[in-house]
């Protein structure tokens, strides 16, 4: 069992979090909708990206709304990086902007499927760990890669459930089970989830946390969906701690089966 997931406090590196739901900030219709959803989720950790400064969009600024939120830590991502060199650069810029040592390391060179590049991710992870970052790599659900990233000092691993933003749910549960069994760092399911029941399932399996973005941001009511995901994540975690029964091929009655109604 993943001991990190089994303890009450969710810890990544030296940081502790009350909530096991991590939110992405993309795709919301407005900064207000995003802030409302973060509040409703109870999340203490949210991802942010980088973009070029543009005088025409100088007002389109996340920093103000996010900085105003108490108890919410920022985790810059390296989205847009196509290789390790670009990812390290993005991480350094993200640290400059947020002051946060946490980085969600993601390198996906192909915009069609957004699958993470394992070779570049591994190279960047080694460099970022050496530079003092708390590295959270986004990876395919590959148990060997997950272990290699743990070995070079990553603070967690973030295997995908399905393609980013696809809403195809938890398609990697077989490989995820192996990662969970082998891992000594928190395993955070990232990407592809569509509905709260899938988040609950990931937590029941032993994930330490779940990262959700699109499923909340594109809901008709993002704040309500954020609250629903929060309940599902908490329920899944609580169920796993409570001890989920083993399945059996045979029935086992829950009521007395004595034949007191028969004539015999």
């Amino acid at each position: 069992m993943d001991m990190q997931g089994g303890s009450e406090i969710f810890k990544i590196g030296e940081y502790t979090f009350k909530s096991r739901l991590i939110l992405g900030t993309g795709k919301f219709s407005s900064a207000t909708a995003m802030v409302d959803a973060i509040h409703a989720s109870g999340s203490n950790l949210v991802t942010v990206a980088l973009r070029r400064f543009n005088t025409e969009y100088a007002e389109d600024d996340l920093y103000g709304p996010l900085a105003s939120m108490k108890g919410v830590m920022l985790m810059p991502n390296t989205s847009g990086a196509r290789n390790a060199v670009e990812a390290v650069k993005a991480a350094l810029l993200g640290r400059e902007l947020t002051g946060s040592r946490m980085v969600k390391l993601e390198i996906h060179p192909n915009q069609q499927h957004l699958m993470p590049d394992p070779i570049e991710t591994y190279a960047a992870a080694k460099e970022l760990v050496a530079q003092g970052f708390v590295v959270m790599p986004y990876i395919a659900a590959d148990p060997v890669l997950a272990k290699r990233l743990e070995d070079v000092g990553c603070a967690s691993v973030m295997p995908l459930g399905s393609a980013i933003g696809s809403g195809q749910g938890l398609q990697t549960s077989g490989m995820l089970s192996i990662i969970l069994r082998e891992s000594c760092v928190p395993v955070i399911l990232d990407a592809g989830l569509r509905s709260p029941s899938e988040a609950a399932k990931a937590m029941e399996m032993g994930c330490s946390a779940v990262l959700v973005n699109s499923a909340i941001a594109v809901a008709d009511n993002p704040a309500e969906m954020a609250a629903a995901f929060a309940k599902a994540v908490a329920a899944g975690f609580q169920a796993r701690i409570a001890g989920i029964m083993s399945p059996s091929e045979r029935a086992s009655g829950t009521s007395p089966l004595t034949s007191f109604l028969s004539n015999g």
Partner: peptide, 27 residues
């Protein structure tokens, strides 16, 4: 990357390439 503390004294020269970035929404 040029750290904020170095901006005031960081001399530029002709042809320099500068990228200015800010936070954006992202997952």
């Amino acid at each position: 990357v040029v750290k904020r503390a170095e901006w005031q004294n960081k001399e530029l020269k002709d042809g320099d390439r500068i990228e200015i970035l800010m936070l954006a929404a992202g997952g």
